[in-house]
Simulated assay, not measured.
Amino acid sequence: MEGQNGSTDTLDIKTAIQIAKILAAAPDERIPMILDVFSKAEVDIDGLDELAEWRALNKQTALIDTDAFVKELTKGRERTDGEYRIKVPEFNQFCNAKGVSARYARKHLFDSGLLRSSTDNGKTNYTCPVQDTESKKTERCVCIIANN
């Protein structure tokens, strides 16, 4: 946690437990409001934004028929080295049109064994740097592993 003057403060265990209880009991739709209150009180707790996002995104599981999603996403595309390479903005636009978070969709596809990942500083990244064969530029792509 970072204080007003840039100094690093730590929460005592009692306060941390109270915050955890508040978050655990809160309905998902209230998490952003709770995080806003903590922010206004200048209590910045690393990971809470991600927690709120993942809680909301996990509700989308039922929205994705994985096979249909992948089939539609890869329809008419060429495979390269056994995978479909979709540029990140294009993947994001596809997901947006489907009403699904692109971040959640990438994680879901990875968890389903259908997505190649890369590692950046020890952290799993659900996109991969790919060099365009014509322009020779490297772009980040969502790489869907072809099953057939």
Rank of each mutant, 00 (worst) to 15 (best):
Val88Phe: 10
Ala56Ser: 14
Asn96Ala: 15
Lys75Cys: 11
Val43Pro: 02
Asp36Phe: 08
Ser118Lys: 05
Leu23Asp: 00
Asp12His: 13
Asp44Leu: 10
Ile19Cys: 08
Asp44Cys: 09
Phe94Tyr: 13
Glu2Tyr: 10
Lys98Pro: 02
Asp65Leu: 05
Ser7Leu: 14
Ala52Asn: 07
Thr61Trp: 11
Ile86Thr: 01
Leu51Val: 05
Glu134Asp: 08
Asn148Ile: 01
Leu35Ile: 15
Leu23Trp: 02
Asp111Asn: 11
Val37Trp: 03
Val70Lys: 02
Arg140Trp: 09
Glu78Val: 04
Ala16Arg: 15
Ile144Phe: 04
Leu57Ile: 12
Glu90Ile: 08
Lys107Tyr: 12
Leu11Asn: 10
Arg106Phe: 01
Val37Ile: 13
Leu48Asp: 02
Trp54Met: 08
Lys87Arg: 12
Asn121His: 09
Lys137Arg: 12
Lys98Met: 08
Ala25Lys: 14
Leu11Pro: 13
Thr127Leu: 00
Ile34Cys: 05
Thr61Met: 13
Glu50Asn: 06
Arg116Pro: 00
Ile34Asn: 03
Ser39Thr: 15
Lys136Gly: 03
Ser135Met: 04
Thr133Leu: 11
Ala62Thr: 14
Asn96Glu: 15
Met33Trp: 07
Phe110Cys: 07
Ile45Ala: 03
Lys71Leu: 11
Ile64Ser: 01
Gln18Lys: 13
Lys75Met: 11
Leu73Asp: 00
Lys98Leu: 04
Ala26Lys: 00
Thr138Gly: 03
Gly113Met: 07
Ala146Ile: 06
Arg55Met: 09
Ile17Leu: 14
